[in-house]
């Protein structure tokens, strides 16, 4: 063990603070630098749509399975989108086997909120025959390696996977009340919006870090997630407790996030284009 590793193990707080004093982070990034994004779509053949996203060492995989279900009585012409996040013990010692923990449930709910509030996909587009059949999209996000900033990684993976979905064409015969699936004819989903999230960790009143690693999250006190749409308008701000922030900083975050929206969406487009070639 080198002396640097000893310092990191025994005095993690002072080790970390020294980096921040020089406006750097232990992985060499500045405080407002994002990690490189790596996206691959169509990675799982058993899913209707899938994507793998890497943000630095954080690796998440999203697979979308489509099933035909019956619409609810309240909304007879709407399909379902069910995001679900699975954090297996494989990805970090933080997570234990068994029923989903707080973090996984919170993340699933966050994804659900973003999808519905941003109107990514109209539930009525998923309807096959009112009162009879509708598509149910199960969007399962699996974390393969956890190194912070799951919010951004899962939303990017979800959006990339949604754009990769090909649903078989279904024709409904009203007389026999039967639906026929024709797997040879497939259609992509009609996505209306492309939200992108950016996460910041609050360390102190004056120090905030973008795109936190697991170490940043551990040292900091709470995260803020800002979700913007592709035209730069604000969709969601998610701040589950933590250190308080001044509104000026929030403005700064939103400006940083605005630049990231274009970057992320073009990265997804590039990955989709690579897949088609």
């Amino acid at each position: 063990m080198t002396s640097l590793q000893v310092w990191r193990t025994f005095e993690p707080d002072s080790y970390y603070k020294t980096f921040l004093e020089h406006s750097k982070r232990p992985d060499g990034r500045g405080l407002s630098n994002f990690r490189p994004i790596n996206i691959k779509v169509g990675t799982v053949t058993t899913a209707e749509g899938s994507a793998t996203v890497r943000l630095g060492h954080t690796t998440v995989m999203c697979g979308i399975k489509a099933e035909i279900a019956t619409p609810t009585l309240r909304h007879p012409d709407e399909g379902f989108i069910v995001p679900n996040v699975e954090l297996y013990p494989c990805c970090s010692p933080m997570f234990k086997a068994g029923p989903p923990g707080e973090k996984a449930i919170g993340l699933s709910q966050f994804l659900k909120n973003v999808i519905t509030s941003a109107e990514v996909l109209l539930p009525s587009d998923l309807c096959i025959a009112p009162n009879k059949f509708a598509w149910c999209l199960y969007c399962d996000v699996v974390c393969l390696n956890y190194d912070g900033n799951l919010y951004d990684a899962s939303l990017i993976a979800l959006m990339a996977a949604l754009q990769n979905v090909l649903l078989p064409e279904v024709s409904y015969d009203e007389e026999s009340e039967k639906a026929t699936v024709s797997p040879e004819r497939t259609l992509p989903l009609k996505l209306k919006r492309r939200p992108v999230s950016s996460t910041f960790t609050m360390y102190s009143d004056s120090i905030q870090l973008v795109d936190p690693t697991a170490e940043d999250e551990e040292q900091g006190s709470g995260e803020v997630t800002v979700v913007l749409l592709e035209d730069g308008s604000l969709c969601t701000i998610h701040k589950p407790g933590g250190h308080s922030i001044v509104s000026d900083f929030l403005d700064k975050f939103i400006n940083l996030a605005r630049k990231r929206v274009k970057l992320v969406n073009s990265a997804i487009c590039k990955a989709l284009a690579e897949r088609k070639v």
């Binding site: 799982v44 058993t46 899913a47 899938s50 995989m61 697979g63 979308i64 399975k65 099933e67 679900n84 699975e86 297996y88 013990p89 494989c90 086997a97 989903p100 199960y138 399962d140 699996v142």
Partner: peptide, 17 residues
Amino acid sequence: CAVKMAPFSAPVRLPPQ
């Protein structure tokens, strides 16, 4: 040992349990 299959790993979606 714990083997976990991702919900999308099979042709029919597996429940998380």
